[in-house]
Design a binder for these strands. Sequence first.
DNA 1: CTAACATATGAATACATATTCATATGTAGA
DNA 2: TCTACATATGAATATGTATTCATATGTTAG
Lengths: 118, 118
Amino acid sequence: MSEFMDRCAVECFHPETVGRVKGNRLSEEEVRKLSEIFKALGDETRIKLLHALSQEELCVCDLSKVVEMSQSLVSHQLRVLRNLRLVKYRKEGKMVYYSLDDEHIINLFTQGLAHIRH
Amino acid sequence: MSEFMDRCAVECFHPETVGRVKGNRLSEEEVRKLSEIFKALGDETRIKLLHALSQEELCVCDLSKVVEMSQSLVSHQLRVLRNLRLVKYRKEGKMVYYSLDDEHIINLFTQGLAHIRH
DNA sequence: CTAACATATGAATACATATTCATATGTAGA
DNA sequence: TCTACATATGAATATGTATTCATATGTTAG
C-alpha cells in the first residue's frame, strides 16, 4: 500500500492480483535469512570450500590446498560459513577440522547444478 | 599443487586426502555458474520478486506494488534475473509480464526454507 | 621457558553492486 | 501528429565485501 500505490494508477494495476500475491509473501525474517544463505553460496571460494567439505571433513591446511587459496583467505571465509551455521568444526591439537553442519546444503548444490545443466 | 604446497609442510598436510578431494572438485565453469545463480538469489529484493513470480505471472507495475519498491529498481533487478534466465517475459501492449523461466528455482527456495527453519 | 606450527583476525584496499534519479524507449489512443 | 502511460536504462552514489598483508592466538614439542 501507500507510497507505491500512487503511480500506474488506471490501466495496469490489478488490485486483486496484487492483493492475492501479497497475501502469500514471505515474512521479512524469512526473506532476510534466505538471502543471507544464498549470499553465502554466491561466492566462488565458498562454493569450492563447501563442495570440498561435502566430500569429507578437512583441516584448514588441507582445505587451502584443495581450493588453492591462502590459509588466511580460507580462514576468513570459513568464519562466514561458521557464522551462518553452514559448517561446524572440531579441534584436535593445533589443527581444526571443518565439516558441513547441515546436509541441506548438499541438496542446494544438487538443485543448483540441475539448473545450470539445463 | 605449486604455490600452496610450500607451507604447512609436515604435520598437517595429508596428500592422499587432498588428492582425493581435489579429484572430485567441480569444474571452474560449474563453480562460476553456481556462484552466479546463488549470487542472484542472495538479495532481498530479488528473493521477493522471485517468490512473487513463483505464485503467478505478473506485470512490472504489479510486481513493484507487491514488493513495495520503485518501478526503476524492479526493472533493474528483473534485468539481472533475465540475464541469468531465471525469469522470462511476454509483452502485451505496453505492458510486460514476467514469470519464472525455470521451476528449479522453486526447489531452491524450498531447500533454503528447510534450512532456515532448522 | 622457547621455538615452530596451525589457525584466526584486524586493517587496508580494491572491486562489485544495490539503489536512486533523471531520462529514454516503445506503445496505444485521440 | 501529440499525449499519456508502462517499462527500460545510463549515470552517480553509497554501501558491501573479497582478498591480501601483517600479526595475534593457541597448541605441541623440546
